[in-house]
Design a protein around this nucleic acid. Structure first.
Lengths: 224, 224
DNA sequence: TAAGATATGAAAGTAATACTATTATTTTTG
DNA sequence: CAAAAATAATAGTATTACTTTCATATCTTA
């Protein structure tokens, strides 16, 4: 996707980092290689020590950017949702017909991610794969309520609310717009996960796309 | 729920344990208190050391039953799905009308769990809460494909297949029965999670139940 | 009922993790 | 060029996730 503006910065809650990784070369390398390494090793086996070795930097230097790997995950996931939200708003903003708008929204959310050259240190395709495989771990914790209060999940929540509003726009009487919106966002990740690891549990794959499935699901649910 | 048979044993893949915890008193205490402790501390902070201290037993003795805490989680989740499958089959088996049968199935899956006196060492209500908050962690791992091959997720997959078949029974032309079935099973857990931690992202709560939402979702999707 | 087998407990040890602290060195900037 | 800031090197701590060894208790059955 090409951006109209030369420089866009995805705004991430600054409590996720100690020092903004976008502010230095080392910071960007930390982000860049953490994506590669989490993708390769999985979040559980990923450590700051290993990352330090990989980028030829010291463990303690990484701690100057992120308190711990959980916060780094919150940073990466927030960045991802912020990036997706940008595409979402950009793609739907100018559409006036509510149904068409909602259709477009579902498309943006559920279509496969492609590389965005605007952010050279971030591989969005790998990051998307991390979201599919690790996102739940960012909120399935005992600290979720506190972290929610501190705003770590704002962008994700805003995305759900945007979809919810679009649903209500199309069908004001539909009684479950929030649940349906959250089902689409979370369900998309889950369907992609199933394609990768449990293909018998999904119809999505070579012939059917998540976009088709969720478009059908949403419009059948809200059309009377 | 009352069982017709005096003694039912939920069959769990025996690779999840080194020694069947149902076979001894210590084994049952391990299962009983692991549920209490995982519920209390969360899976991430739960350790065999802490469990050993709690039940006045030695860490090394717990290792004689479960290789590690991941395997214990696989045991508990398999047990849960086996237990739910039992209720599922029991409740739907005698219904001949496909729509009514599917309706009942959605109900069993999505209604709140109540204590089952048949298994005195297992608190199903707390276990259900563990499933809501921790189940994803059992498969969001780098080992998922191997563990899938070894059958650790059989019961869960069978549940999805059963729902899928019921959907197809009602509506043979519906093109996404597997995706819809997996959405209901996974989505139910997610909606309950949202009720607990992100109430603004769901319509479920005091007035609306997950059962109502998913019943509406499924039947609108498959009715032409 | 004694002898052997099995289950459990106690204690110690290991490698890795997730940090923190201190000090040294390099880089940036005014 | 000096001071400040950033980064690196090193060492240290508490905890985790085990493994090993050996002791003791209990159960089994000949």
């Amino acid at each position: 996707m090409k951006h109209l503006l030369q420089t866009i910065k995805i705004e991430v809650n600054n409590k996720t980092f100690v020092k903004d990784p976008e502010s230095s070369d080392l910071g960007k390398r930390i982000v860049e290689y953490s994506i590669l390494m989490i993708h390769e090793l999985g979040f559980d086996s990923f450590t700051f020590k290993k990352l330090g070795d990989k980028i030829g930097s010291n463990e303690s230097s990484i701690y100057r950017y992120f308190e711990n790997k959980h916060k780094l995950l919150l940073y990466l996931t927030s960045w991802y949702w912020g990036w997706l939200e940008y595409q979402f708003v950009f793609a739907t903003n100018s559409i006036s017909d509510p149904s068409e708008k909602l259709q477009k929204a579902i498309e943006v959310i559920s279509k496969p991610v492609v590389l965005d050259a605007s952010f050279s240190h971030i591989n969005e395709v790998l990051l998307n794969d991390i979201i599919i495989n690790e996102y739940s771990k960012s909120y399935l914790t005992k600290e979720v309520d506190n972290e929610n209060k501190e705003g770590y999940f704002e962008i994700y929540k805003r995305m759900v609310m945007r979809i919810k509003e679009m649903i209500t726009e199309v069908s004001p009487e539909y009684p479950f717009p929030a649940s349906l919106a959250s089902t689409v966002l979370e369900g998309t990740l889950h369907q992609y996960f199933l394609v990768q690891h449990f293909p018998s549990l999904t119809d999505c794959g070579d012939e059917v796309t998540p976009t088709e499935y969720f478009t059908d699901l949403v419009f059948k649910s809200i059309d009377k």
